[in-house]
Simulated scan of single mutants.
Amino acid sequence: MRLKASRLNGNKGVKAQNGQSILVREFEPADEPEVQRIFYEGLMEMVQDTAFKGLKFHPESFLLYAAMTVICFVITMCWWVIGLLPAIVVCMRYFYSRRVIRGYLKQAMSRDMGDIEGYYMKSPGSCLWVAVMQGKVVGVVAAAGQSADVVELQRMCVDQRYRRSGVGVAMGKKVLEFAAAHRYSSVVLGTTAYTQAAHQLYQRLGFHCIGVTNGYVIPGARQSLLEQIFYRVRHHHYSLTVRNSKITSNGQR
């Protein structure tokens, strides 16, 4: 039987890049409102990330929208369609990105993020931690056992006001320490983020991208025709072999 995570908590703080101390500790019931706030805000940031930044990574969408413009012009023979349609496309991408992500949020809140104690803290081989700076919860990360050998890094979010200060790295290391202590052989994660900083963080922790799924279907998506046209994401699959990680079971590098 795997060791209970609470015995391996190791409440040692680390220094942030601004000199403040970062404490990564296990979730407590009193943390729930802040954890859910950070999770909600982090997910909602993905709306613009997907609707606008993501467009340049999907040339097939550009071709589809261009074809739609040409067809509309041929049918209507109105030049103003060429100027109006791009604005409509952007609005539709925002609308469907928001709807899909809110659907995903609703599903998450009905499962693990609505029952953190039951899903993570009382489940062998799983745990959820919060990052604390100056007494404030500023980040959240979870580990969920997928099999006897694999654990998944989940729900990593950092309060926007405390990013680029080392919080994400500190939380990622906590998951790797947990994996080593519980004798998992690998840690995996998946992300649909287009923001380069997120990918740089995973790579800094030692993760390697092992595949990309284009046109990934997010849980909670309705997959209607319009949704498929105006919402499209890439899902990056990352993996890290624990025995090759610089993190050991006692948390030393």
Rank of each mutant, 00 (worst) to 15 (best):
P86S: 07
A144N: 08
A221C: 11
G145M: 11
A198H: 08
G42N: 03
A108C: 13
A108I: 01
I38E: 02
Q252A: 12
V150S: 09
D112S: 03
A180H: 05
L105S: 05
Y194S: 11
R102N: 14
F39T: 05
R111I: 00
P59F: 08
G125F: 03
P29C: 06
F52Y: 14
K4G: 09
C209K: 07
P29Q: 10
K136S: 05
Q20N: 14
Y94T: 07
L85T: 03
Y162P: 01
I218R: 06
I229T: 13
A131D: 13
G172D: 04
S249N: 05
M44A: 05
G172V: 05
C209Q: 10
H237A: 12
S239T: 09
S126H: 03
M68W: 08
Q154D: 11
R37I: 03
S147H: 07
P59C: 07
L176G: 11
T76I: 05
M121R: 08
M133I: 15
R204E: 11
M77C: 13
Q134K: 11
V150K: 12
E152K: 09
V81T: 14
R155S: 02
L64D: 00
G114M: 00
G251M: 06
V132I: 14
D115M: 00
Y238Q: 00
F207W: 04
